[in-house]
Design a protein around this nucleic acid. Structure first.
Lengths: 337, 337
DNA sequence: CTGTTAGCGCCTTCAC
DNA sequence: GTGAAGGCGCTAACAG
């Protein structure tokens, strides 16, 4: 780094603390126009940039917040990141994004790394393979907000979606069209949203007197290839499903790949509804009706909660549920039989 | 933050500097096993995390690098980010991603923000509306690498692609299929890759005795809507083009939207080739043949160069050109006439 | 209205 | 082998 407060002070013939005061525009304390001018001139001349590291150390505050997400390639999480970033900018914070690639080790490392780098708060979409680091944050009373995913066993701040209800409604839509065998393809089964969606799926089947069939359920990893494999298996069942509920954008592509390979037509041969919307879903191989998350609202709300908790330690935790929209792109049709 | 070196030292009955030495595993200086043990015990007991802010201040080194990109929603830039992140992790660095949304103001702010936060180096895909901040970095001898985009007027580190040649080859492919009227749709015309690609386009036309026609060129913004508008205009020309060279993933979706609306079929009615590949391009409305960038290599190379320049100030600048691959997905066919 | 002093948590040189 | 002292750049409390 270049010039310091001291350099500026020397050039302007004042004490460093005076420069500091001018820079921070301290109220009450009046500073003569004359010295102010000299100081600004010196700042300009030296092209002075305050050292935020020193500032952070002194203030015990860095004006940064960390965002830990499992996949920066996901339009859903990127949408949240952008919204959060906008909020941060408004309040003079810098957002540090850390990508865990759905890897628990990386997440734990990211938490401690960001913590020891002095971020003022964290927003985390946890991998949910373990949770001791989360408990540690709670014990430390460190401000953080979970997003998308949630631990039933801990009381924390969280902004999540009404996944159970959304899945219920999506499957209800399929049932109303006459579908009785409905597949379910998702990512890792321990994730909170997956658990909830599966429960919504089960509930609506039960309420409509349809049998729950484990053969129609595939929960593995959120990769294109695994979703493809699962779809192939579903379609090769003796009695294949006539509709599928899909959980995740990349997973959707895996299903589409299988549909192409099996030369099926959506929605004639197969009805599909996918969780997680992209603007791009209209331009997929076959456009896909989706459950759309309000990413902006998730980001905004997460920041709002975090911001409050950064200001005072002893607030009660907030758990906010954001609802979803169904975006119909005609990927569902009446069941053939 | 919780416990400090001092706390650990007090608990272990040693001086803070001894703890510091143990933690950093200082060579030469031998420390008795006994005190080591006491110190490790104290560290564990207090759950001590070193304060990176204090460390950065002292060392004038933060072990962070900043990545400034115009669009975190772009698979291309995200690919680079992931690769860079992997390299950073290997070397014990943390990557801070900053999204400028193709906005020059935000980029300038990001540069100075990251700089004053003490990042050890920067990787920048600049907006290219202005360049004084880049010049400033050069003057300060601050280590940075440009990616994807480049300023002819400055000698800097850069990792770019062979855009001119790639465009040349793509258009040659179309010409060989008999196309004579080939559209060109791109983002902002001041971007280095756009300039280069347009030049490649012009060169290959000239070499094949085809006339360059300004009516077939649309360079505006990298948005879906603008690309859509441009495509509609192209298709409504008295004599519309039989092929289009597209520059950018989002732009590709704009073109696809127009193609759907005009009820055209690819490649029967229209051949298209798009710059910038995604794994997902196979699952678009119509699969699109693309020019694929080696994002991993870009990230790796950028880190390598940056890393060298962070170690010693007076290295000559490196400019590396990474070549591309053509991924054929049958979105081109023989011209009808 | 401005200067003095102390210290955030860490690392490094110099002692002993 | 370990302790003491000083300082990275900044801010805050206290003087004057």
């Amino acid at each position: 780094m270049g010039a310091t407060l001291k350099d500026v002070a020397a050039l302007a013939n004042v004490h460093p603390s005076t420069v500091s005061r001018v820079l921070r525009n301290v109220e009450n304390l009046k500073i003569s126009e004359d010295t102010k001018e000299r100081i600004f001139k010196a700042i300009k001349e030296l092209n002075y940039q305050p050292d935020q590291t020193a500032r952070s150390l002194r203030l015990k505050k860095s004006f940064t917040i960390g965002l830990i997400i499992p996949n920066v390639a996901s339009p859903y999480f990127i949408g949240i990141a952008r919204s959060l970033d906008a909020e941060c900018t408004k309040e003079g914070y810098t957002l540090i994004i850390s990508d865990t690639n759905e890897n628990q080790e990386k997440e734990i490392k990211a938490v401690y790394d960001l913590y020891s780098r002095g971020v003022d708060g964290l927003v985390i979409a946890p991998v949910q393979d373990s949770d001791e680091h989360i408990k540690d944050l709670i014990d430390k009373k460190f401000p953080f907000v979970l997003i998308d995913r949630y631990f039933e066993k801990y009381d924390t701040n969280a902004v999540i979606c009404n996944d159970k209800e959304s899945a219920y409604n999506a499957v209800k839509h399929l049932i109303d069209l006459g579908h009785k065998r409905i597949g379910f393809i998702s990512g890792r089964p321990n994730l909170y949203p997956v658990v909830e969606r599966l429960e919504g799926y089960k509930n609506v089947l039960e309420e409509n007197n349809l049998e729950f069939n484990q053969d129609l359920i595939f929960s593995s990893s959120p990769t294109l290839d695994d979703a493809y494999e699962a779809s192939i298996k579903l379609m090769e069942l003796p009695v294949p499903p006539t509709a599928i509920l899909i959980t995740g954008t990349i997973i959707t592509f895996g299903v589409l790949k299988a549909i192409i390979e099996k030369k099926k037509t959506v929605p004639k041969d197969l009805s599909i509804i996918a969780f997680t919307d992209t603007i791009l879903a209209s331009y997929f191989m076959s456009p896909v009706s989706t459950v759309s998350h309000k990413v902006d609202e998730i980001g905004t709300k997460a920041f709002e909660i975090l911001f409050e908790h950064m200001k005072s330690d002893d607030l009660p935790y907030s758990k906010v549920v954001i609802d979803t929209n169904f975006v119909d792109r005609n990927s569902t049709a009446k069941a053939n039989i």
